[in-house]
Design a protein around this nucleic acid. Sequence first.
DNA 1: TCCCTAATCTTGACAATGTAAAAATAATGA
DNA 2: TCATTATTTTTACATTGTCAAGATTAGGGA
Lengths: 193, 193
Amino acid sequence: MAKTYHHGDLHEQLLNAGELALSEMPVEQVSLREIARRAGVSHAAPKHHFPTLGHLLGEIAARGFRRFVAALDEAAKAAPTQTPEGRLKAMGRAYLHFAEHNAAAYQLMFGQRELMVMTPSLVTSSYAAWTQIVDAASSLVGPARGQAAALHIWSSVHGLSLLKLAGRVPPDLPWSNLEEQQMQMLMAGMSAE
Amino acid sequence: MAKTYHHGDLHEQLLNAGELALSEMPVEQVSLREIARRAGVSHAAPKHHFPTLGHLLGEIAARGFRRFVAALDEAAKAAPTQTPEGRLKAMGRAYLHFAEHNAAAYQLMFGQRELMVMTPSLVTSSYAAWTQIVDAASSLVGPARGQAAALHIWSSVHGLSLLKLAGRVPPDLPWSNLEEQQMQMLMAGMSAE
DNA sequence: TCCCTAATCTTGACAATGTAAAAATAATGA
DNA sequence: TCATTATTTTTACATTGTCAAGATTAGGGA
């Protein structure tokens, strides 16, 4: 089913336009009409490809999760010290880096945007991100404590990212040191017990 | 300057209506017109009390932070074991409880709502929340490491709250146990080193 | 080649939002 | 009492997401 009707795969172009918009403006400003505008079509054109804005955003978020998983995976493989802890630290740093440099996308992926629809591909791709962290955590603390440890990692890094994005980290704190300290405490908490 | 013009202190009533709305509907649906509607005035009436929706939301968030600080303070005072760790744990539990039972308010306070304005009272009340946690953390790990520890606590509990609110905590995990485990790892991470 | 059907896109409309300006109303102060 | 000022309402406008009706175009038979 090769698609080349009017615009040649508008479905794909809408996703691209959405991602581009998300990289250039805050998540709140990314509207259906804005995406359609960027794709060069009328404001109602997306209707036939995505029933609702929520579905379009859901697909964009799914793409984000795929990039996210890939970034963490790559970081783990490129970790300087190839131990469970070394890989986890590398993933943590990659996580913070991703959130900071893909702020709007990250906020869409994890945000409380009520209208975003849990598309099947969003479910699977976000679940893949979760299992990725569970696996990495399990290799450190064993499978029995894997999920709890993963939740702890995720909470910490997620919370830190959001506090930073929301500007709630006091600006007088030296960030570069802080990031390392946070990772340190995180690892210590899991290794203990 | 006793205020009893038309509605008898509409300023206050708008804040009340806003808080009530926030307790009855998701944060995304709380609009200027909705708050005005609940206060029984026209949609443009708030203009003379709050120049913009962002200012009104900012004041509501400030109130939320005051309730938040009070709740954590009370929890610390009522902690069963009056040690730095005991108080911190009680505060952590109170934090999670507040976030869960004031979901919309919490999401407003910490959310990435772009339009919310950092009102002076919001700055001071949110800073009060921060120093409250720094103080509690300092009493456990000493003032030198207080800020870093506070950030770690905040990140973890904040992240956990948001993951739960966003429905990203896998539902097959037993929450009651998890909450305790998370606190355990959190404390272990700070106490180490 | 022609034409019909179905997929795709545009146009126009509706209700809702935040904000601004103008008009109306009520309270204050002389 | 009355003019001034503070407060609220009424209109209006530019946005937004979604829907329904058209117009347009592509595809596959004849």
